[in-house]
Structures are given as structure tokens and as C-alpha cells.
Simulated scan of single mutants.
Amino acid sequence: MSRKTPSGKTASRKTSFRRTARWAPAAGLAALALTATACGGDDGATVQGVKLIEKGALTSCTHLPYPPFQSEDKKTGKVVGFDVDVIDLVAKRLGVTQKVVDTPFETMKTGSALNAGKCDIQMGGMTIKPDRTRFMDVSDPYFDATQSLMAKKGSGVRSLDDVKAKKLKLGSQASTTGEEFVRGKGFDPRSFDNSNAELDGLRTGQVAVIVQDDPVVRGWLKDPANSSFELVANLNTGEQYGMWMRKGHNPALVKLTNQVIAQARSDGSYKRIYEKWIGPMPPAAGGGS
């Protein structure tokens, strides 16, 4: 997944505020070279062995919008979503509140946002990939993901082969694993900066088909405004999402996050969050990954 917005905007879960990835090795190496200021300031704290950049808060980076994983509630201005609820469980275990920082995805995928002390943990449907684990620590998988194709009803599309055979223009979200997947299949998709722009591209006919994370597509199709479109195909890419932390810096937070994910799966919390934001949970989704 991916998205691009102005950096530096923050929001408490309690307050209002204004969210995957063409890999750039050089950027990743530069990210490692950054010296972090996260816990060196007077505002930092250590709770249960976990280093926090701000006292009383677990600060999370994400890139908005990316419903149902995170987006800004139009009525309250709060950042809400599947990932937000999972990180809230971690914050609750620490006895603090979650604070969300809206961050360009480019600074998230390289680890530079973490290294620069912008946040303690990163969320946002970020696929676990070897190139990312070189520069960041990652939690155990918390979500099994697939990609889906969305098109206008009656398009006759049921696969990527159909898109190619019909010579239809395919759209994708920039820097996402979905975009990487279709490029690997020989497509040259039109790349949109964020998920909203990608959806608008489909609505306005700039593209005939789009590829996006399956839960995102299913969320869009719940909106009556998208009633003329449908999910036309699933692409099982074997992806799993993880929560990301600064490399070698906060092992206690990695351990705690894994404990929280495991407990949520066993005590029913995960199921409640899943069904709140995604829908009926497949039996396999509740177990370990």
C-alpha cells in the first residue's frame, strides 16, 4: 500500500487532525545513517522497558487515508480504523494513549520516520518484505492480505489476463505491493498518489480497472456512491501485514506488540476488531499466521 501527504501533522486519538512501495536502496541506507532523537529529549519516557518519544503517549506513524485500516472520521476528526484499534491495545497495555502522526509513506518504508524520532511504531497495512526488514524491526504478522481488481459492472473482467486481452488501462496506488505485483506481470499501470486518487481515477474513467488491497476494495463497495462498480477478481499474493519499529532500538516494544497481537487473537479482541472494520472473519484469520 502507499500514500503521499504533507508530513509533520499529528493528531491524538482524542483530538482532530488531518496516511505500500517502489523500493529505493539508497534511501534506505540513508535512513540507517540518520541519528534519531526519539528518546533523547526531555519529553521522552521509558515504560515497562519500552522507549517512548513522548511521555504518556505511544506515537504511531501512518499515511492517510487508507480505510478500513486508518482514516479520518468525517464527523469527529479522529483517526480510526483496524490498525488504529490494534495499536490502541498496545497503548492500553502500556497505560498510555495513542497519538497518530500522518507521514509520507516514502519515509515509512525506509525507516527514516522512525530513525528521525517521529514515532515509536508504524502502522498502515505495511506488507512484511525482506527489503524492509533490513532497515526496520517488524512485529509478528497481524493480517493476511490479498489484492483485488475493481472495475465497472459488466466489464467482463475476471482476471489480469482479461485486462490484458481487452487492452484496458489498469490503475494502481503508487509504491504499493499491488502496483509491484502487476508490474511483475508485465503491466504498466497508471500510478496514483493515494487510494482516494486511485478510486477517483476509476470513477472518472481515467482507468478501467484498479488493483488495491482486498479489504480496501470491499470497504469502497459498501459506499452507495460506488454501486456501479464491483470486485472482479482476487489476486492471492501471499502478503502479511506487520507493525514496524526502529531497527534494534526498542526490542521491548517489539516483544510487547507481539504479545498483544497473540492475546487479541486468543481473547476475541482481534475478532471484534476484524468484524468491526472488515466484516465476517474467515476461520483461518483468527489463528496465528
Rank of each mutant, 00 (worst) to 15 (best):
S2K: 10
T5N: 12
P6I: 12
K9F: 12
R13V: 15
R13S: 15
K14Y: 09
T15H: 03
R22M: 09
W23S: 09
A24D: 15
A24Q: 14
A26K: 13
A27G: 09
G28H: 10
L34T: 08
A38P: 04
A38H: 11
A38W: 13
G40M: 00
G40E: 05
G41K: 08
D42P: 13
D43F: 09
D43S: 13
A45W: 02
T46P: 03
Q48V: 01
Q48I: 00
I53T: 14
A57E: 11
L58A: 05
S60P: 08
C61P: 07
S71T: 13
D73T: 01
T76C: 04
T76Q: 04
V79F: 08
F82N: 05
V84R: 12
V86H: 07
I87S: 13
I87D: 13
V96M: 04
K109Q: 14
G111Y: 08
L114N: 06
A116Q: 15
K118E: 14
G124I: 01
G124P: 02
G124W: 01
M126A: 11
T127W: 12
I128G: 00
K129Q: 14
K129I: 10
D131Q: 15
T133H: 02
T133S: 09
V138C: 12
Y142W: 03
Y142S: 01
F143A: 03
F143N: 03
D144K: 13
D144M: 06
A145L: 15
S148W: 09
L149V: 01
M150E: 10
M150D: 07
V157K: 10
S159I: 05
D161Q: 11
D162L: 02
V163G: 00
V163H: 03
K167E: 06
K169G: 01
K169I: 07
L170V: 03
L170Q: 04
G171Y: 07
G178S: 14
F181K: 11
F181R: 13
R183D: 01
R183M: 11
G186W: 04
D193G: 12
D193Q: 15
D193F: 12
S195W: 10
S195L: 09
N196L: 06
E198Y: 00
L199G: 03
L199F: 12
D200S: 11
D200P: 00
L202C: 04
T204R: 10
T204M: 05
Q206Y: 11
V207E: 03
V209Y: 05
Q212Y: 11
D214S: 15
P215S: 03
G219D: 04
G219R: 02
K222D: 02
D223C: 06
P224Q: 05
S227H: 14
S227T: 06
S228F: 02
V232H: 04
N234R: 15
N236M: 08
T237C: 09
G238H: 09
G238F: 09
W244N: 00
M245V: 03
R246P: 01
K247M: 07
L253A: 07
K255P: 00
T257C: 08
K271I: 01
R272T: 07
Y274P: 00
I278A: 03
M281L: 07
A284H: 03
G286H: 04
G287I: 02
